[in-house]
Write a protein that binds this DNA or RNA. Structure first.
Lengths: 218, 218
DNA sequence: CACCTCCCTAAGCGCTTGCTCACCTCGGGG
DNA sequence: CCCCGAGGTGAGCAAGCGCTTAGGGAGGTG
């Protein structure tokens, strides 16, 4: 329920149709109650199927969680890598990374909650695979921060610590964001992009805003 | 297991002794596996008792979670209120609040994880009571930020949003902090106090550090 | 029409869960 | 000495869990 029907776009490459309906149902249920409190009967029911139908498309309930976690992590990683490689100044790239990453966590906060907070329920092998993706996520942001420090645009005494803090701040959006609240995903993304720049010690904002044609100056 | 035996100090006013052992066992178990994945047999086993003994001291498993959540939230709220009322400059008070709040989340990250991430498993009445405590928590920090903006020490375009972000950053420490990692709770507290000041637009740090006797100047 | 395949369901198996209950143990007062 | 209440146990109940299995119906092919 709610206005999150567009979410099915995220799962476009999950086929056949019944398997996709099950994923969407599972995301809703896991996000609401948590993995362990969700029953396979509940998932199947939300997808309009009998409990047994789940096992035609997925071997276990854990595999369903793994599919969600895997797709979600790859999506999030893509967002950050695109920003990292977008070729502006470090400030532009960090701003873009945080804005998009936060917007995704707010817009798809049900998916993001499962992705970020239900890792512990994965089996050992699946867990290891997801942890590797998370290290890549961290590396993407750290690269931007390092670039900014090297160019002198940023000033922070602890690059890994500040990177961790920026990512942590973004991830936690999935925990508190409420679709019925007054903030839109775009607003939160904008606010957080600004906060992230402050955190890394970037202070040239006003200066840049005052320049009439930023692109033409060199 | 681990070097967290001192944690029992947190639960000093839970009596009798058996009830306290059960709380400590439950915190460990809930933090490791989550509330729903933890069995009453596991909790009782960790406390060195039979499964039935749990029900002499607590009516249900949920009541055990509620006790933990209640004590933890009151502890966290006290930390922030003490900092709010500590009577220095807004920067000093925000710095102190974040430093202590983060240190608590790192040092007692098992308790903090239960307190911050298992709310959803509480019954309706207990949940409402805890949510009220969380609103007070938010208000304590917001007061400090408002004071700083009013005095001109801080500069931020969105006080409630920035307050939310600072709290969110601190809370998320409980998720990622690892006792076996290389950062100590004190180091994280120090780093985060600095980050929080940057987030609220406070820029007078160096100036203050350069003054030889800060207390004697007026 | 028979036949095969793909999806799906009804029924239910074996097990674990939160929780209960009849009984036990043991230190202290009359 | 008996008795008693507080705090504990072993055994087990009803319900719910993840998952399996036997079989049914729809649609394409000969």
């Amino acid at each position: 329920m709610g206005a999150e029907g567009q979410q099915s776009g995220q799962w476009a490459d999950v086929t056949p149709d019944a398997a996709r309906r099950l994923v969407i149902a599972a995301v809703e249920a896991f996000a609401e109650r948590g993995y362990h409190a969700t029953t396979t009967r509940d998932i199947a029911g939300r997808a309009g199927m009998s409990p047994a139908a789940l096992y035609i498309h997925y071997k276990t309930k854990e595999e369903l969680l793994y599919r969600i976690s895997s797709v979600g992590h790859r999506l999030a990683l893509d967002i950050l890598r695109r920003a990292r490689d977008s070729g502006g100044s470090p400030a532009d790239r960090l701003s873009e990374a945080v804005r998009c990453f936060v917007r995704w966590h707010a817009e798809h906060h049900t998916t993001a909650r499962v992705v970020q907070y239900e890792l512990g329920a994965l089996g050992e092998e699946h867990y290891a695979e997801i942890v590797a993706l998370r290290r890549d996520t961290d590396a993407a942001v750290r690269t931007i921060v390092e670039d900014g420090v090297a160019s002198g645009d940023f000033g922070t005494p602890d690059v890994p610590g500040t990177t961790l803090a920026v990512l942590s701040l973004c991830i936690d959006v999935a925990r508190w964001f409420n679709a019925e609240g007054k903030r839109t995903p775009d607003e939160v993304g904008e606010l957080y992009a600004d906060l992230a720049l402050r955190m890394v010690g970037y202070a040239k904002k006003q200066e840049e805003a005052a320049r009439p044609f930023p692109g033409l100056i060199h």
